[in-house]
Design a protein around this nucleic acid. Structure first.
Length: 796
DNA sequence: GGAGGCCTCGGAAGG
DNA sequence: CGAGGCCTCC
């Protein structure tokens, strides 16, 4: 037996050597799941399996990258030949190869969620549907669910059950919107994220010869985080593995936290039914955390009814008890956590990177950041606006997208008039409407603007043609230029670089720098020999040139932290619990342990949702290696309102002997009178009667007189809140303001303007009705106003 | 055409 | 409170 097997425990090594047949690995938190997966692949390679025949699917780019690195260490160069990547990236790659079978060009665009939303917004507007009833996000969600459950728009429209659901929710036209959305994407040669999965399924379903090809290619298939797969992903994996049935899935039902977006724990249960010969391995020894933490985690998850039986244990030290700290406000909570980190660092000679602060919602990072900054503790916030989400980056990428696929409607709409080219909203609306009516792409319509049916004047037609000519010239350059040369050319030719350079404000400079950084990234892409992660280099058609379309494919499915390169890694990590999944830290602080925050207000109504919150808490607790601190505040600001909060029920659910209460002195509490919906009574450890509060005790705005300050928690000094809505003009809020006839305004008059206040007319230029007045306002200084718009009142 | 005020609304998140 | 979409005004 190979020596690497010595490094594994019995269950781990059983799972590694069982290479044939369907197997499922249920891996408890911290039980060495990634290690098993990597060694399993190494084992396959050692036993003579060709790397080209192995497919490993993950959920995140990060997970894929990490695993590839680790396999590289264990298995060496051969690892390069694996197919390893996210579901989306691997399937997108297959779809590009087989695109013609499903009627798409190989250069199809991948719409991100902003593109999808913007397209849906347009469709709703064109249909004059009220976007309150038909919220784009709600409609898109519905469509997404449909596709993830293998419905296309035709099937959706003809399913009576689905139709009656849409009727009862007041959105009977959803099917039509689904149809329009699908057709618009198709005409734009674009797929959204769900389409990548749906069309892959369709490809395999309708083209058995294609399915057969990939079935034979992938003799060994592995799926990580199996508990997070949705139905379409499951079905595709099943299809792909049907020939050899060497399928290995790894997951932990206790860590399923994405059910809200369609992940289905049921897949784990179905798996047993679909593969009667399934062999299951349980990894139950935890190598990460102390005994206290493992015991606490077990006691939490035991409260869930829905789960597979598992007994996670550890040989590690008992460790310190879990601290529970209480504070009066969110700001105080930040200070207490920051102070605690400061002291721990001092007392135990620890690094910043040994600490993580985890929270339920991103908004909670603010108070933590402020407190850390006060103590000069370096930190890094995960999530937030990512590099690729910045406007200037998306703008430039839209130009690149056009060079590759000019049918890309969302890209056209985004930049056809940025920088401005005199092709305004009205023109664009006309073009889109012609395209939709004729069932053509927007690009085709604007290329035919001279002969087509769109009614436009010749000046506008010229501007559109000039734009089209520019894009066409890039199309011609695409195959013969490397990515950097073309990207550089485009960013200059389109005028974006000049536009951004002209803005010398600090923000403007940073926009320009971001674009430069993107270009640097492309240069790196060209210089490095790196091939896209998920596909072996031998699979890529080599003409030697690393073209812009290759680059775009490489980044289209990248998101968030993928781009963030930070030279200094020694920082306290701040992130949501969701994004902490799969990570581990020596010291973990879970903050905001309060009812209606964690568990979330929206999860309080159903057992399933509450259980998902509880699994989320389980994930949070099991991130900690040595020390865990849980913290809650009795009041915090939410959307500008102060709310009272009760300690989370989850605190109560932890095995008591694991806890050490720091400053949670029992204290009497008052509740709103109308707070009677108690379904959970009794005193808890924290000396409080736990109840569901009405709106979680949000103090209703209407009950507060306008000028009174809201009650403050004692942690916040009075006068800390900045004054808003200071009105410069004396007549602000005066609804009976009546402007005088503009023609009466004369030089020298004293006038009043609703926004600018009082001023004197210095001069008037031009002839009425286009005359402009220069007015010197007392507060606002000199302004030039067009008289027909200005709404001025003459003062005596 | 574009800047800025007004209004609305708010969940966590992968690709 | 803050972000983002929409609308108004110049």
């Amino acid at each position: 037996m190979s020596e690497y097997l010595q490094e594994l425990n019995e269950a781990q090594s059983d799972a590694v050597v069982q290479t044939e047949g369907p197997i499922m690995i249920i891996a408890g938190a911290g039980s060495g799941k990634t290690r098993v997966l990597t060694y399993r692949i190494a084992h396959l390679l050692n036993n003579g399996v060709d790397a080209f025949q192995i497919l490993a699917l993950t959920f995140t780019n990060k997970a894929a990258r990490e695993m590839k690195e680790r396999i590289n260490k264990v298995a060496g160069a051969e690892a390069k030949n694996l197919w390893m990547g996210t579901f989306h990236s691997v399937f997108a790659k297959i779809l590009r190869i087989e695109a013609d079978k499903i009627g798409f060009p190989t250069n199809f665009t991948i719409y991100d969620s902003d593109d999808s939303k913007s397209l849906m917004r347009d469709i709703l507007k064109e249909q004059s549907l009220d976007d309150k009833t038909y919220k784009p996000s709600v409609v898109l969600n519905r469509i997404s669910n449909a596709k993830n459950n293998l419905y296309n728009w035709q099937q959706y429209a003809h399913n009576p059950e689905v139709q009656s659901e849409d009727k009862s929710t007041g959105r009977p036209l959803t099917a039509t919107l689904f149809e329009m959305y699908s057709k618009r994407c198709f005409n734009a040669s674009a797929m959204d994220f769900d389409d990548i999965l749906y069309y892959t399924w369709k490809l395999f379903q309708e083209h058995p010869e294609v399915l057969y090809k990939y079935q034979n290619k992938f003799k060994y298939i592995m799926v990580d985080e199996f508990q997070d797969t949705n139905y379409v992903q499951y079905v595709i994996v099943r299809k792909l593995s049907a020939q050899h049935e060497n399928i290995c899935v790894v997951g932990d039902d206790a860590q399923s936290i994405y059910a809200f977006r369609g992940a289905n724990i049921q897949n784990i249960l179905n798996f047993e039914k679909d593969y009667p010969e399934l062999r299951t391995f349980k990894l139950e020894q935890n190598y990460r955390s102390t005994k206290v933490i493992v015991q606490a985690a077990n006691s939490i998850i035991a409260k869930n009814k829905n789960q597979l039986k598992k007994d996670v244990w550890t040989d590690n030290h008992f460790g310190e008890k879990i601290k529970v700290i209480k504070s009066l406000s969110d700001n105080e909570e930040g200070n207490m956590v920051a102070n605690s980190i400061f002291q721990e660092k001092m007392n135990h000679q620890l690094h910043n990177k040994d600490f993580a602060i985890l929270y339920r919602t991103n908004a909670q990072s603010r108070s933590m950041e402020e407190a850390l900054r006060r103590l000069n503790i370096p930190y890094r916030v995960y999530g937030g606006t990512s590099f690729y989400n910045r406007k200037e980056i998306k703008d430039l990428l839209a130009y690149f997208r056009l060079a590759i696929n000019p049918s890309d409607e969302e890209a056209v709409k985004r930049i056809i008039n940025y920088p401005t080219r005199g092709i305004g909203k009205t023109t664009l609306d006309k073009l889109v409407s012609t395209a939709v009516n004729e069932g053509k792409s927007l690009w085709e319509t604007l290329c035919n603007v001279e002969t087509g049916s769109t009614q436009l004047n010749s000046g506008t037609r010229d501007k559109i043609s000039a734009f089209a000519t520019m894009v066409k010239s890039w199309q011609i350059m695409l195959p013969t230029y490397n990515a950097y040369d073309l990207a550089h050319h485009i960013s200059g030719a389109c005028g974006l670089l000049t536009e951004l350079y002209a803005d010398r404000t600090p923000e403007g400079i940073s926009h320009y720098e971001n674009v430069q950084e993107l270009l640097n990234g492309i240069k790196e892409f060209c210089d490095s020999g790196d091939v896209p992660l998920e596909v072996p280099s031998a699979e890529i058609a080599e003409n030697g040139i690393r073209t812009l379309d290759l680059y775009l494919q490489d980044i289209a499915l990248l998101t968030d932290a993928d781009k963030d390169k930070d030279d200094d890694d020694n920082k306290v990590m701040l992130m949501t619990i969701h994004s902490a999944k799969g990570l581990e830290f020596m010291n973990v602080y879970v903050v905001g342990m309060e009812e209606a925050l964690f568990p979330s207000q929206l999860a309080l109504n159903s057992r399933t949702e509450l259980e998902e919150e509880r699994r989320l808490f389980y994930v949070a607790v099991t991130r900690a290696e040595r020390k865990l601190t849980l913290s809650y505040a009795v009041s915090r600001y939410k959307w500008g309102n102060l709310i009272n909060s009760a300690p989370s029920r989850f605190l109560e659910e932890i095995d008591e002997e694991c806890l050490e209460l720091i400053n949670t002195v029992p204290k009497a509490r008052t509740y709103n009178d109308d707070d009677t919906r108690s379904s959970w009574g009794g005193e808890n450890n924290f000396g409080m009667k736990q109840r569901y509060t009405n709106q979680n005790g949000i103090q209703k705005k209407t009950e507060t007189p306008k000028n009174s300050t809201p009650p403050k928690p004692s942690g916040i000094p009075a006068g800390f809140k900045k004054v808003t809505n200071a009105q410069p003009a004396s007549n602000a809020g005066n609804s009976d303001f009546v402007a005088d006839e503009p023609s009466k305004i004369q030089v020298g008059m004293n006038v009043n303007h609703q926004r600018f206040g009082n001023g004197q007319v210095i001069s008037i230029e031009g002839r009425f009705p286009d005359s402009k007045a220069i007015i010197l306002f007392e507060q606002e200084g000199q302004k030039q106003l067009l008289l027909k718009f200005a709404k001025l009142k003459i003062l005596n």
